[in-house]
């Protein structure tokens, strides 16, 4: 097995994820791009688990599991935020979220 193949795949996936996060305007698509990045990280962890002999066996796989759990939590909260945003503004474009106005009661 040549580990360079999954590694390069993971690197390219991560780059595509970054590109997607920066390029996309729709919040749901941004979340998808984030999923790509997380998967790239997972792929690196799994590949490293097979190629590097760690002190604790299968540390990489355990970490990958943890990351998957975190991703699930993240997607849950993230989608809740996106839906809330849509309810408030009828729009989910990230570059149209007004940040300059201050919420009430904070002055």
């Amino acid at each position: 097995m040549r580990p360079v193949i999954p590694y390069v795949t993971a690197a390219l996936l991560f780059g595509l994820g970054v590109y997607g996060v920066l390029r996309r305007r729709n919040a749901v698509l941004v979340l998808m791009a984030v999923e790509l990045m997380l998967n790239a990280v997972n792929l690196i962890l799994i590949t490293a688990d097979t190629t590097v002999q760690a002190v604790l066996p299968h540390g990489g796989q355990v970490f990958a599991l943890f990351v998957i759990v975190l991703a699930a939590a993240e997607i849950g909260v993230g989608l809740a935020i996106v839906l809330q945003l849509y309810r408030m503004r009828a729009d989910v474009a990230v570059d149209r979220i007004p940040l300059s106005e201050q919420p009430e009661g904070q002055r």
């Binding site: 970054v18 996060v21 920066l22 305007r25 990230v94 570059d95 979220i97 940040l99 300059s100």
Partner: peptide
Amino acid sequence: RAALPRAVTAVL
């Protein structure tokens, strides 16, 4: 208080 995409761009 930069707009969100610009902030992300800057961070990355």
